[in-house]
Simulated scan of single mutants.
Amino acid sequence: MRWPSAKFWGYTAIVLAVSAILHWKWSQGQIESARQKLMARQRAVAVELGPRWFPLRERVEGWALDLARSAGDELVDREALKAWDFRELAGIYLRLRVDEATSVDAIRKNAQRSLRDAFTACLLRVPNPNPLVGAECKRTRDCQTGEYCNEADRCSRPAQPFNLRVAYRTMHVLSDEWVRDAQDASSDLRLRLLESSFDDTVRDDVPLAAELLTRAQYYLVVLDEPAEGATTTEALLAVPHMARVGVWRLSDGKPILRLRREASGNLIGGTPSVEASVLEARQRQANSCALALAVREAIGDTTAAAVHPR
């Protein structure tokens, strides 16, 4: 059997190389075309939502930074509270440690761990749904209109106050970081993942977040001060410590409340048979509730003294 000549193999290699280059150029053209379409859609969303989200974000971040720099003089605007009790209204909530609110970037990063807790439950009067009773879900599209897929993977109506971390997560598609990720995507797979995530966010999360941010009438922030020996947030919330609480009215930016109180509750009913992790979780709840009751007393709620934080 005669093998093809060296010239044949040379021409074959040239053809294959040219074909590979042409395919690569075609693939890059397809990726670039898909990238430009995705960026155009992102810019359209930014034009619609940016004027509502960016100014609000700058204001609430500025207020959190000011409170982190200094607890300031105590403020309770009783006259404003007589006609405008924020505890019955829709609002925005953020809870961080003081050392997590040192800059705008730090707030945006650490806000991802901010959760509603016993503080909001013991302070506010807005009836919220049970987050564990809804239908199971993976994404918000699995839920009925007006519901979203919460942290427990259950369909639920949005609870109040609206956690700022959810807004950061949802509005991430408007951020510079998202734009850089889209511009740096060098493979079709990576770009498809970004496009799929963008579609899910715009279709499921953005409308709900935009509605809740529009309805919000106050901004409530809690900044926990460090305590000796508590190196993590969970450990800090489980021991007595001081915390700063601030409330601002969103309509005009008026500060309504600025307090510094101790978060320290008495844990009633704890027994040695209960696991240490369970006792610690209960203590965190008791401390947070005690802080809320201290705030209620400060604003003149006479029923707060009759409630035991436990």
Rank of each mutant, 00 (worst) to 15 (best):
A152D: 15
K82N: 12
V104H: 08
A68E: 07
E136N: 04
V104Q: 13
L56P: 03
A64Q: 06
N128K: 11
V98A: 05
R125H: 15
D153I: 00
V173M: 13
A185R: 13
R180M: 05
R52H: 09
V173I: 15
T145Y: 00
F162S: 09
T102F: 02
W178H: 11
Q160C: 00
I92C: 12
P127F: 10
R59K: 13
V104E: 04
R95S: 13
A101T: 02
C122K: 08
A135C: 02
E100V: 03
N130Y: 01
A80F: 10
R180A: 11
L96E: 08
Q112K: 08
E88T: 15
S114N: 06
F54H: 07
F119A: 11
K109V: 02
A106P: 04
K109D: 14
R69H: 09
V166W: 14
V76K: 13
L132N: 14
A90M: 01
P51T: 09
S175V: 01
D184A: 14
L124E: 13
Q160N: 14
C149V: 05
C149Q: 02
S186R: 09
C137P: 10
D176T: 13
W84T: 10
E177K: 11
C149A: 03
E177T: 08
E100I: 03
A167K: 10
R87E: 00
G91Y: 12
T145C: 00
L89N: 05
V179N: 05
S114F: 09
A167Y: 06
A152L: 06
A68R: 13
A64M: 13
F86G: 14
G72Q: 08
E151W: 10
V104I: 06
D105E: 15
P129I: 03
N130V: 02
K82Y: 03
S70R: 11
V98H: 02
R165N: 14
A64E: 02
D73H: 12
F54I: 07
L75T: 03
S186A: 14
G134L: 11
D105N: 06
L96R: 01
N110T: 04
E61H: 05
G72K: 12
T170N: 10
L94G: 07
G146W: 03
E100P: 07
L89Q: 15
G62C: 01
P131M: 07
R141E: 08
L123D: 05
D184L: 15
V133G: 02
S187Q: 08
N110P: 00
L132W: 06
L89V: 04
D181K: 14
I107N: 09
D176L: 15
E147Y: 02
D77M: 10
W53D: 05
E61T: 13
F86W: 13
Q112H: 14
V104L: 11
V126E: 09
C143Q: 06
A185Q: 07
A159R: 14
E151F: 12
A111Y: 05
K82R: 15
Q144T: 08
L123P: 02
A182F: 02
D105C: 00
V104G: 01
A106I: 01
M171T: 15
W84R: 15
P158S: 11
M171P: 01
V60H: 01
L94H: 04
N163W: 11
G91S: 06
A121I: 06
T145E: 15
A101E: 04
E147C: 01
D66Y: 00
H172W: 09
V179I: 05
R113D: 14
L94P: 03
A167E: 06
